[in-house]
């Protein structure tokens, strides 16, 4: 187990390194950032000086070494637009993104697992068919369109929820959060529901598939034969094993949620790092894009690592090679 964890840890570092190379390559082939920092009427000498300060006058490998060195020291440069350290800008907005992502994941899990268990345990029931058709519609819907429809119905027409913004926030353990104010919850409902749609459908479908697979196993038949109640079979024996595949996709779903949060945040003007990314793409604010990508990569590899470790702990049948 320990050796496995160490091996995965090394893999993580390799992935992060690969991401840093790709991010660097992409950034070097997309335009010249020097024109983002110099004034429009800058002389050639000023441009050359700016280039030197940014390290752009060196060869690509040299620039990469510098880039990596800065990354390792947590030095990501300053935003060309805000003139603030890019890392601070992102970290300031990280809690807002994590809020909608976690609330969306919570909504998806709480709704999807019971429905998936039901549909998997009673595949022929008409209600199960309805659930499954519904989930197929769920994965066929463009998430941003769902958000717009929710805004139109609940914010424009019914005026039940606000259409944008994060509402009041309070400081808790040094983090500003809107999850501790009623006004904040009022604001988070629509974006979180929007974001949860796709994940909900996927978790539901995987829960059902897992349950159907498990309910055919001999130990389920045996449990029934020895007289365990229906409920006991379902939750005691079925669910425990049926949920194993669900745990493994949690990591990837979290990633998907963070990615799709960029769109949800744009629609609902939610001040998270996804909206900052989109704004930075429009403004070619390279340092911010780099920090976002590296931070998200870091979150992904850490989550995947945790999921892999959990996986071997939940299912003792899986032996670590």
């Amino acid at each position: 187990m320990f050796a496995y964890a160490v091996k995965r840890l090394i893999q993580m570092l390799v992935v992060l390194w690969a991401v840093s190379v790709i991010v660097f390559m992409m950034m070097s082939f997309t335009g010249d950032p020097v024109f983002m920092v110099v004034p429009i009427d800058a002389t050639d000498a000023e441009i050359a000086q700016a280039r030197r300060i940014l390290g752009l006058d060196r060869s690509l490998p040299e620039q990469y070494v510098l880039f990596l060195k800065n990354l390792l020291q947590g030095e990501f440069g300053r935003s060309y637009v805000f003139r603030q350290p890019a890392l601070d800008l992102i970290l300031e907005r990280l809690p807002a993104t994590l809020e909608i992502v976690l609330v969306a994941l919570l909504i998806a899990t709480v709704v999807a697992i019971p429905l998936g268990v039901f549909a998997g345990a009673n595949p022929q029931n008409p209600l199960s068919r309805l659930i499954m058709s519904g989930s197929l519609v769920g994965i066929s819907l463009p998430g941003f369109w769902v958000g717009m429809m929710l805004i139109f119905i609940f914010a424009v027409e019914l005026r039940l929820f606000p259409s944008s913004g994060r509402g009041e926030t309070v400081e808790f353990l040094g983090i500003r959060t809107s999850l501790l104010t009623a006004n904040g919850w009022h604001h988070i409902v629509l974006p979180a529901v929007t974001l949860s749609f796709g994940t909900l459908a996927i978790i539901l479908r995987i829960t059902r598939a897992g349950m159907m697979e498990v309910m055919r196993q001999d130990y389920i038949k045996f449990a029934r034969a020895k007289g365990v109640s229906r409920r006991g079979v379902l939750y005691g024996h079925g669910l425990r094993n049926g949920l194993i595949p669900v745990v493994t996709i949690f990591g990837l779903q979290l990633g998907d949620l963070i990615a799709f949060a960029t769109i949800t945040e744009t629609i609902f003007a939610w001040p998270g790092m996804g909206k900052l990314l989109i704004d930075s793409i429009y403004r070619a604010d390279r340092p911010v894009i780099v920090v976002y990508l590296m931070l998200v990569a870091l979150i992904f590899v850490v989550v995947n690592f945790i999921v892999d470790i959990l996986y071997t702990m939940i299912d003792p049948r899986i032996t670590v090679k």
Binding site: L252, D256, A259, V301
Partner: peptide, 20 residues
Amino acid sequence: ADVQLSFPSMLIALFLMSAF
């Protein structure tokens, strides 16, 4: 493939388009 699969498609596509 392993590295790529650990990232959501949407994010990779968004990243590429932001560069292209």
